[in-house]
Simulated assay, not measured.
Amino acid sequence: MARPRATRANAFAALLAIALGFAIATQVQQTDQSGLEQLREDELVRILDDVSQEQGRLASDTRELESSRDTLLSGVDSSAEALKSAQERLDTLGILSGTAPATGPGVVITINDPDRKVSAARLLDALQELRDAGAEAVQIGDVRVVANTWFADANGGVEISGRRVDPPYSIKAIGDPATMASAMDIPGGVSESVRGDGATSTVRQADSIEITALHSLQDPRYARPVPAPSK
């Protein structure tokens, strides 16, 4: 085959590719470096505090699980300990699945939307921020939020899993109050986005709130438990 010739067009294309690659690399490097550099000192301190609190919570959970494991393996009063562990697990699953009421520290978020401009996507963003901040149970209006909860716009309101919710929107979340409140107020976050919609939001931290809305479980249409293997 003939050897390719170094024409002016080929040289120009090569220079263009090099310049484009350099520009992309420079942009990626600047993006990586500016992720935290653009934040104020108080914002950096708040992020560090949130990370420290989350680390402490995970360490505490790890110690509790290891203690339960050691007690079960020791065989000392194993029946009572196993029953207690099963009941605690059942209570936890009830809260996570939304079939049991929950109480604990958390936040109450109120979104006043007189012009009805806040969309379902905005409420979903708020839910995601709360979950990322460690929310363990959430209620919006009279609807308990669970893993398969869905949101849709509905003529000046929002439909949540088939139930209409009108403003002002009330969101209750159980978890670390300071962490969740900080998550709502991060630059470009939910509070700022809500203001951009022409609405207002308030976040109230509380030592104890109650989430009483319950989720009704439905039998799965397709999924079935895996049969236990025969011995």
Rank of each mutant, 00 (worst) to 15 (best):
V194T: 03
V226W: 08
I209H: 00
L214S: 04
D176A: 08
G134F: 10
I140L: 02
R116D: 12
K117D: 13
D219R: 09
Q53P: 02
G188T: 14
R5F: 06
Q29R: 13
A137E: 11
A59G: 14
L73F: 13
L93W: 10
A23R: 06
D77C: 03
P114W: 07
P4Y: 07
T92W: 15
K231N: 15
T92A: 12
L16N: 11
I18G: 03
L39C: 07
L83H: 10
V45L: 15
S60F: 08
Y222V: 05
S52T: 12
A17P: 04
L36V: 05
Y169L: 07
G106Q: 09
V76H: 05
L130W: 10
S208N: 06
E88F: 12
S230G: 00
A14F: 13
S85N: 11
Q30W: 14
A59L: 08
I109F: 02
N148Q: 14
T110M: 05
G94S: 06
L90W: 07
S191M: 06
V203P: 11
E81S: 03
N10L: 04
G188C: 00
E88I: 10
A133G: 07
E81A: 12
S34I: 11
D32I: 15
L123T: 01
V203N: 09
S119E: 11
E41A: 04
H215I: 10
A199K: 01
